[in-house]
Each structure stands twice: as structure tokens, then as C-alpha cells.
Design a binder for these strands. Structure first.
Lengths: 180, 180
DNA sequence: GGTGTCATGTAAACAGTTACATGATTTT
DNA sequence: AAAATCATGTAACTGTTTACATGACACC
């Protein structure tokens, strides 16, 4: 189960609460869950029952009680193993294609607008990613190698949006130049 | 609902059965459903109830009865409208990142193997896409513009895998050259 | 006084997959 | 004799999201 192991991964950076993990997941561009409570708290119960994490409840004067989770030895083991498991190629969900596919019969203007709209969406997302990375993304950075890896991952994400942008710009121009 | 409109889109190429659509969806790299019966037959009931398609049952001597669906006028209208609706940027689901993120502490060999394995997966997928395109993909091609659009979509899909491949190759080399 | 953050959790709904089931015909 | 294709459909499950619920504190 990917979410469970992602939580283990986060805990490998140090003890934290479910709420902490929720925020990190929500802010991450590649931990592709909405970061909703239902899943996270359920997953925490699971990995606790499996003995992969331990729990310590901290009662605070200001605010509600925290439950700090920490990796157990078994948790470290499970994470190490999971990390090396093979995985399938990335999959892209392009809701835009579902629309574009049937838009050929629209007027030149409408099609141009559709493409321009998507271009703006992609550009916006790209800038957003870039900005939130500049402002300091979550990244363990425990070693030179880890920094290298995480930087490469974020590069790839930015690169994808840049490619997408170039693609839609190119298509847009080709459509505009069309007219037989 | 994207699936419903995708079915309308397929029917815009001519009347067909649920089974036909299922096969097209399964073979398509961007109609991102498993093409399972449950969803498709349920969706067909929906769009039939909504008056977007009409149904004609054909009893065959050899094999089971077919139900041919056709677009109604309302269906054409709905498709035309849906096609021009704006959509969000593509999202990438990278199960590989979930693993790679926590693999920094592995040995050089294990990490190299993980990256090599992913590279192979991506290369395989890329070749598969290229091959199934060469063998003739589903594409309406009703006009020059439609051909242009569908070609661009398939180009983008191939381009994505090519980028992914380049990325993992580059990372692999950087990891190998590391060693302080 | 309303909104936002901290921090936990639950309920209900929706989306999507795998597997099952039928029954004839064709292919290996 | 077994497996695949045609063609329909259902059942059970997993995964995911949205919304609800509590309660204190801080900020505007």
C-alpha cells in the first residue's frame, strides 16, 4: 500500500503527527493524495497495528492532544525494502485530451480559445510549482545523494509542465496557421 | 462526467456497441479507464436515459444480441459543448517517486538497479506505444484538422515517455558518477 | 464576531478495479 | 480439449474525495 509506505518515509525524517504528514502530502506535487484525514488516520492505525510505528500521546495545555508517531525498527526495515521495489512507468491523466479529441469541428476561434485556455492553466501550474519550490519545499536532504535525488524529482515535475506548455503552444500555432 | 462524454465522442464516429467502445478505450493510451464492463454499461444506461443516445438491438444468428448505440441530436449538442469546456493541467502519477524518495540510503548497487529497472520499464512502455501507433491507432481523421489534433496528442504521449527516459538516464549517470 | 490554524476523528458518497457469470463461436 | 473472441451484464471490493464534527486558541 503506497500511502502507508509514504507515511513511513515521512517518519524516517523524524517523529511527527498525522496532521504534520497531512500538510506535507497536501503540499507535495508527487505524493498524489488529497491529504484527506480519512485515509491518513486510517493508514496510521494500520501501520501502528503492524508494529511499523510507535505512538506517543502528548497532552498540551494549549490546544488538543498530539499523537507523535515514530518509526520502529520493523518500520525502518519495511521502508528500506519498499524503496527498492520496482515500479511501473508514470501515468498521465490528461482530462484536456478528452475534450480536445472532439473539438475539431468547432470554429477556429473556439478552438483557439480552448487551446489558449489550457496554455494558461499549464503556465499557471508551472509557475506555482516553481514558486512553491523556491519558497522551500519539503525535502529531507539528509545526504548529498538524497539532495541530488529530490532535486531531480522536482526538476522532472517542472520539466513536465514546461514540455506540456511547449506542446500546447506549438499545437496552437499549427492550428492558427492551418486554413487551407 | 468524463466517461459519458468520451462514449459520446466515440459514437460521433458512427454507431457502435458497448463492447466496441470497451475495446477502443482499453487500447487507448489517454482514455484512462481500464475499459471494464461495469463502468461502460452503467454509463450507457445513463446517457440513454438522458436522451443523448438511442439504442437498437440487433439479434444475430451467430453469437449474442448486439445493442447498437447512436448519437441523438441532443447527444451531438452535449458533445459539442463538452468539447469546448476548459480543463485542468495534466496530472502525473509517479509511483516510482514514492519509492525513489526513500532509496537514498541504499547501496550504490541497489540504487543503480532500481534506476535501471525503471529505465527498462519506461523504455518498454515507450516502444509499446510507438509500436501500437505504427500498427494503426484508433483515430477519427474526419478532417485535416482532426488528424492534426490526434497526431499531436499521440506525439505528446510518446514525447512524455521519451522525456521520462532521458530523465532517468541522466539521473542514473549522475548517481554513478557521484562517489565523493 | 468571523475566519484560520492546530489536531483529532467519522460518515457518506463516488470512482474505479477485479472477478464472476452466461453462452455461442472460432482458434490453437 | 483448452483458450480466445464476441457481447452482455452483476457483485464485491478498494481507493479516494467531500463533508461533517469537536474544541481551543489566535488573528483581523
Amino acid at each position: 500500500m503506497p500511502l502507508n509506505h509514504t507515511l513511513l518515509g515521512l517518519l524516517s525524517c523524524g517523529p511527527m503527527t498525522g496532521y504534520d504528514m497531512k500538510k506535507i502530502i497536501q503540499a507535495s506535487p508527487w505524493m498524489h493524495w488529497s491529504g484527506n484525514n480519512n485515509q491518513i488516520y486510517k493508514a496510521l492505525v494500520e501501520i501502528l497495528a503492524a508494529g511499523l510505528v510507535s505512538k506517543e500521546t502528548l497532552y498540551q495545555d494549549d490546544g488538543p492532544a498530539k499523537k507523535m508517531y515514530s518509526l520502529t525498527q520493523a518500520g525502518w526495515e519495511a521502508l528500506r525494502q519498499w524503496a527498492l521495489e520496482p515500479s511501473e512507468p508514470a501515468e498521465v491523466k490528461r482530462s484536456f485530451f478528452l475534450h480536445l479529441a472532439w473539438a475539431a469541428e468547432a470554429s477556429q476561434e473556439q478552438l483557439a480559445q480552448l487551446l489558449a485556455g489550457y496554455e494558461e492553466e499549464v503556465r499557471g501550474r508551472m509557475l506555482l510549482e516553481r514558486e512553491s519550490r523556491r519558497r522551500g519545499r519539503f525535502s529531507p536532504g539528509r545526504s548529498q545523494r538524497e539532495t541530488l535525488i529530490w532535486d531531480a524529482m522536482y526538476d522532472r515535475i517542472e520539466g513536465f509542465y514546461a514540455e506540456e506548455l511547449r506542446w500546447v503552444q506549438d499545437l496552437r500555432q499549427r492550428i492558427e496557421e492551418e486554413q487551407p
